[in-house]
Amino acid sequence: MFPPFPNPPTTPTQARFGEGDLIRRSASSVTPPAQRQTEVAKLIDVSKCIGCKACQSACLEWNDLHEEVGVNVGVYDNPLDLTPASLTVMRFTEWVNPESQNLEWLIRKDGCMHCEDPGCLKACPAPGAIVQYSNGIVDFVHENCIGCGYCVKGCPFNIPRISKVDEKAYKCTLCSDRVAVGQGPACAKACPTQAIVFGTKEQMKSHADGRIKDLKSRGFANAGLYDPPGVGGTHVMYVLHHADKPEIYAGLPNNPRISPLVDLWKGVSRYAGFAAIGAFAVFSVLHSVVAGRSKVSEEDETNAKRLADHEGSNGSQERAST
């Protein structure tokens, strides 16, 4: 059994990380701390998950969120998708293993992956609306959020949701408030089977190794850890029975990375754009210097007057001939 976190102290506790521990800050630069905190991670062992949704309930409770009572659309997933209130949802997939012809009910807890290279943060135009702490937690700072939804486009996992109430972006915070006082996330605390565990990234990786060994002994030859390198690794990782096919788990991306479109948008396009604008401006200035202004001469006025006074009918003939 993974040792559970001891209960929190009842006295006020100093936060273990804060503003001084930022390594990234959206649309702005930060001075990274001299020493990076030990990276934390949440490990979701899909093979241990029983889909009880205790994590969903704990998330709603701890974060004091109000989700609407939905409808049943013929599946167990409820709510059907992430929302500004449901920062995590269970996704159920009925998958028939083509090798054994056995049904496998794959249940994956979806939510923010806390990428080491967060696409949301990269896309965010509002300074300080998205921050990354040196322990790896990617957090939204709502007073800085402008609700533009760029994070949604930046995220390779389609996680952030914009609230219709306050037009701010919401996603799992990895319970940064709990982690700051030495607790694990609420979902991990609530998980009855320890399918969700929390600790340092190294601890999680070695815990996952043990789990993968167990799964391989049970015939899951492709069991493995999902810590996708395309986004620099994540601070929420999965143990999958079929790590070679993450997409069968309700579309978990195989080799996710920040979309090249987003890279283009947030990278080259800026330089090219400003270069183009600058080029046009410079051209204009240079042109005016070199060519001077185009001025109407007295002669032009005279010609015009002559035309207006005398050449009206000729003009119309002329026009007809052109």
Partner: peptide, 19 residues
Amino acid sequence: TEHFHFWTKHSHVNAVLQP
């Protein structure tokens, strides 16, 4: 699993999880 008998349908959170 989302509910306990006829109790938890009185609880909003559980109602959300299996409405």
